[in-house]
């Protein structure tokens, strides 16, 4: 049994403490550094809340890469499939038609998930703009 609270809770309270007790006391450059540290902890907290690899993303990649069979380890499978997809996009195999539509649907979903971790505020702004 690990000692509670563990990673997610500690990251969250460390971030809150930087913002409430440290940032207001700092001028200029140190203040900027403290805000960056708080932002890094916010990203880390969102990242910790997710599984290390997305089964959804692997399934979408498998559908795009018709002749591909995933490795047993999900992390390896995701990396391998992403690299294969990138190479095929570069070859122009998703330039037109149905392939293009399916690729873009996948890229949208993946980018949305990446942005939800890196900067959910920007994602919300973009989704307001789109609707």
């Amino acid at each position: 049994m690990k000692v509670e609270p563990t990673a997610a809770d500690l990251v969250d309270i460390a971030r809150a403490t930087i913002l409430s007790d440290i940032v207001p006391a700092l001028p200029g450059d140190p203040r900027y550094a403290a805000l960056m540290a708080a932002n890094a902890l916010a990203i880390a907290g969102r990242d910790l809340a997710l599984p290390s690899t997305s089964e959804d993303e692997i399934a979408r990649l498998a559908a795009l890469l018709d002749d591909w069979s995933p490795a047993a380890d999900p992390g390896e499978a995701l990396k391998d499939a992403t690299a294969r997809l990138a190479a095929r996009v570069r070859e122009g195999r998703f330039d037109e038609g149905e392939a293009r539509v399916r690729l873009l649907a996948h890229l949208r979903e993946t980018t949305r998930a990446r942005l939800a971790v890196s900067n959910p505020r920007l994602l919300a702004g973009r989704e307001r703009k789109a609707s």
Binding site: T82, A83, A86, A87, V89, R90, G92, H106, L107
Partner: peptide, 13 residues
């Protein structure tokens, strides 16, 4: 590390 960026590759294509 064998990473890849399909959305950037899409933009380049």
């Amino acid at each position: 590390r064998g990473e890849a960026w399909p959305a950037l590759e899409w933009g380049l294509a």
